[in-house]
C-alpha cells in the first residue's frame, strides 16, 4: 500500500520534470494571454517532444529543465512549501531555499526522464479554483496501463500562467514537501534544513550520471555525508534576477 502511494508520488515528480522542458518555446507565446489549459497542453507537448528528440539523457534533462524552468513558478512553490518557515527566513535564506529546492526537484525527477517517453500527456479539463487559480487536469497515458491523473495547479502572474503545484493521483507535491521541510526545520532550524537540502543535492548530483541505486543507504533525514564533489554540470542557467 505504502509502495503504491510512493510510486504515485514519483509520478508527480516525473511530471514536474517534464514540465520543465517546455520553457523556451513558451516564451514566444507570452505576448498573447492564453488559457491555463492551453498553456499546460503546449508545455506538455514541448516536454514530450524534447524527451523524444533528445538522444542522451543529459540533453533530455537539460531541455526539459529549460521548459519547466519557464513554466513553473518556483518562488511561489518555495513559499508554499516552506510555509511558516518562510516568514522567519531572511531574503538570503529564501533565495538559497528556492535555488536548492528547485535543484532538488530537477535532480530527483531528472533521474527518471528515461522512463517517460512512450506516453501521451493530455489535458482533460480545467477548473476554476478560489482566487483566480486554475487546476488543469491531465492524464498520462501509456499503452496497456491505467492512465495516471496529474493535476497542475496554476496561478497567473503578469498574464502568464505558471504552475505552483503538481498533484499526482491526488497527492500534492507541495503538501508532501511542506511536511518534510516543516519536520526538518523543527528538528534542526532553518539553517540546518538548508544544509540538509544542499547536502542531499550535492550527493544527488554525484550519483546522477550512472544512476546508481546507492543513495538507498543514505538515511533520508540524516543527510548523507557524501563528499561535496558535486559536478555542477547542469545547474539551471538562469539565476533569475535574484541579484
Amino acid at each position: 500500500m505504502k509502495i503504491a502511494l510512493l510510486s504515485r508520488l514519483l509520478g508527480v515528480l516525473l511530471a514536474a520534470t517534464a514540465a520543465d522542458a517546455i520553457g523556451p518555446s513558451f516564451a514566444l507565446a507570452t505576448s498573447s494571454p492564453q488559457t491555463a489549459s492551453a498553456t499546460a497542453q503546449a508545455t506538455l507537448d514541448q516536454i514530450l517532444a524534447a524527451l523524444r528528440a533528445s538522444t542522451t539523457r543529459e540533453a533530455k534533462i537539460r531541455n526539459v529543465e529549460k521548459i519547466v524552468g519557464n513554466r513553473f513558478d518556483f518562488t511561489t512553490m518555495s513559499k508554499l512549501v516552506a510555509a511558516r518557515a518562510w516568514r522567519s527566513m531572511t531574503p538570503a535564506q529564501r533565495e538559497t531555499f528556492e535555488r536548492e529546492f528547485r535543484k532538488h526537484l530537477s535532480i530527483t525527477y531528472g533521474r527518471n526522464v528515461d522512463r517517460y517517453t512512450d506516453q501521451t500527456m493530455v489535458v482533460v479539463e480545467e477548473r476554476e479554483e478560489t482566487r483566480g487559480d486554475r487546476t488543469v487536469r491531465t492524464e498520462i497515458r501509456t499503452e496497456g496501463n491505467p492512465s495516471i491523473v496529474v493535476n497542475y495547479r496554476m496561478r497567473a502572474a503578469d498574464g502568464r500562467w505558471q504552475v505552483i503545484d503538481v498533484i499526482v493521483e491526488n497527492i500534492s507535491l507541495v503538501s508532501n514537501f511542506r511536511a518534510q521541510i516543516s519536520q526538518l526545520v523543527g528538528a534542526r532550524g532553518i539553517d540546518g534544513m538548508l544544509d540538509t537540502l544542499a547536502r542531499k543535492n550535492a550527493a544527488g548530483e554525484t550519483i546522477l550520471p550512472e544512476e546508481k541505486k546507492s543513495s538507498r543507504s543514505q538515511d533520508s533525514g540524516t543527510a548523507s555525508q557524501t563528499p561535496l564533489t558535486a559536478s555542477r554540470s547542469r545547474e539551471p542557467d538562469q539565476t533569475r534576477g535574484a541579484s
Partner: peptide, 26 residues
C-alpha cells in the same frame, strides 16, 4: 515497483515524513 521505491526514496528529504504525508493525503 522496483524502480519506483528507490526513486521515491531519493526524491525525499525525510523519507519517513514523505511516506506519512503521502499516506495521509491518500
Amino acid at each position: 515497483r522496483i524502480k519506483d521505491v528507490d526513486a521515491a526514496r531519493e526524491a525525499s528529504l525525510d523519507f519517513y515524513v514523505a511516506a506519512r504525508d503521502a499516506w495521509q493525503q491518500q
